[in-house]
């Protein structure tokens, strides 16, 4: 039987951190992705430039570097800011960058850039006639997006989205370097203490596999939902 040397509970808590981190990052990433896609499709040159800058920067720099930059670099920035405020106004404050918040924001920001491209392609693949028909009925812009554009877009975006989600879930392991006790960090500590890296890494690998398989199942159901109109081609 698998002997976790009493690390079971801590590993379980670490797994919860991983899941929370991943889900919250996904929300941020989807928001940034939608914003990036809209900016790139808006026809506004300034917005387009800003979005292009964002995606180029994020996609061109390693995730690990970005993570350290945001966490350690961000802390340095906040520290010098608080020093400056103290020197000028005599007000003393100290902000500690929470590693969890830093992790969510960094991962969300990274994957927002990738999802921007996914969403852009998906929005463009929505047939013009579908949107025109909605406009012709007197629908407002927001209603058109909610009832027609978004659901149609989702059927195109889901494959890319599920791919991004899987990579995102695994990228959360990076937060262990900024001191968050996620599953990987707990397992690393346990391996060092017990000299049984094989046991703990195998365990952690299996948990990731279960999580990705489970989300694969959810995405399959979502694909079915948003693909409703496409299953069963025309009879004649």
């Amino acid at each position: 039987m698998l002997n976790l040397h009493g690390y079971g509970m801590r590993l379980f808590e670490g797994a919860l951190v991983t899941i929370e981190l991943a889900v919250l990052s996904l929300v941020i990433a989807v928001l940034f992705g939608l914003m990036t896609a809209s900016a790139k499709l808006s026809g506004n040159r300034m917005l387009h430039l800003l979005a292009t800058l964002y995606t180029t920067l994020i996609r061109g720099v390693p995730d690990l570097v970005l993570m350290m930059l945001f966490f350690f670099g961000g802390q340095t920035l906040v520290n010098s800011l608080s020093d400056a405020v103290y020197a000028r106004f005599g007000v003393d404050f100290f902000i500690n960058i929470n590693p969890f918040v830093a992790g969510v924001l960094t991962i969300g920001l990274i994957f927002g850039a990738y999802m921007g491209e996914t969403f852009r392609g998906a929005i463009q693949s929505v047939e013009k006639g579908q949107v025109e028909a909605a406009a012709a009925c007197g629908m407002s812009r927001s209603l058109i997006f909610r009832r027609v554009k978004f659901p149609l877009m989702m059927s195109h975006a889901l494959p890319g989205l599920s791919n991004n989600w899987q990579v995102l879930l695994k990228t959360t392991a990076l937060v262990s370097i900024i001191g968050l006790s996620d599953m990987v960090r707990v397992a690393t500590q346990a391996s060092k203490a017990t000299f049984e890296p094989f046991t703990f890494m195998l365990f952690v690998g299996a948990v990731y596999l279960i999580l990705t398989s489970f989300s694969e199942w959810i995405f399959k159901r979502l694909r079915l939902k948003y693909h409703a109109g496409y299953v069963g081609a025309a009879n004649d």
């Binding site: 006639g129 025109e132 028909a133 909605a134 659901p151 059927s155 409703a228 109109g229």
Partner: peptide, 12 residues
């Protein structure tokens, strides 16, 4: 109301 050449019924 408008009726289109390509019908444009919402696919979903």
């Amino acid at each position: 109301a408008m009726v289109f050449q390509n019908f444009n019924l919402w696919a979903h």
